[in-house]
């Protein structure tokens, strides 16, 4: 929960509500980007950004190296699969 997972923003789907599509290790889902946008970096300019995603919210922009290191750490801690499964099965009654 507290480690987050890095992903790359591939599309800004709803600039007004600050929603974007992110790719996390091949899994795509919608996230909220309110915490990483401001006047100098508006929602529209976020495509291509690497971000650290905590429970569906981008909390900070990171560089690609940092993202790769964090993904490797999550893999080694055994958290990676759990996190991706949680994303895939979120909200399903049988999950």
């Amino acid at each position: 929960m507290c480690l987050g997972i890095p992903g790359k923003i591939v599309q800004v789907t709803d600039p007004e509500n600050k929603l974007a599509l992110v790719d996390v290790a091949g899994v795509r889902r919608q996230i909220n980007i309110a915490c990483i946008v401001d006047e100098s970096h508006p929602a529209e300019s976020c495509v291509g950004d690497w971000v650290l995603v905590h429970v569906g919210f981008a909390m900070i922009r990171v560089d690609e190296n940092e993202a790769a290191k964090t993904l490797a750490l999550l893999e080694e801690l055994g958290n990676m699969q759990d996190e991706l499964d949680a994303m895939r099965h979120s909200g399903r009654p049988d999950a």
């Binding site: 569906g56 919210f57 949680a86 909200g91």
Partner: peptide, 9 residues
């Protein structure tokens, strides 16, 4: 339901 994010709730 298990959710990944409050957005999913």
């Amino acid at each position: 339901r298990m959710v990944y994010s409050p957005l999913d709730a």
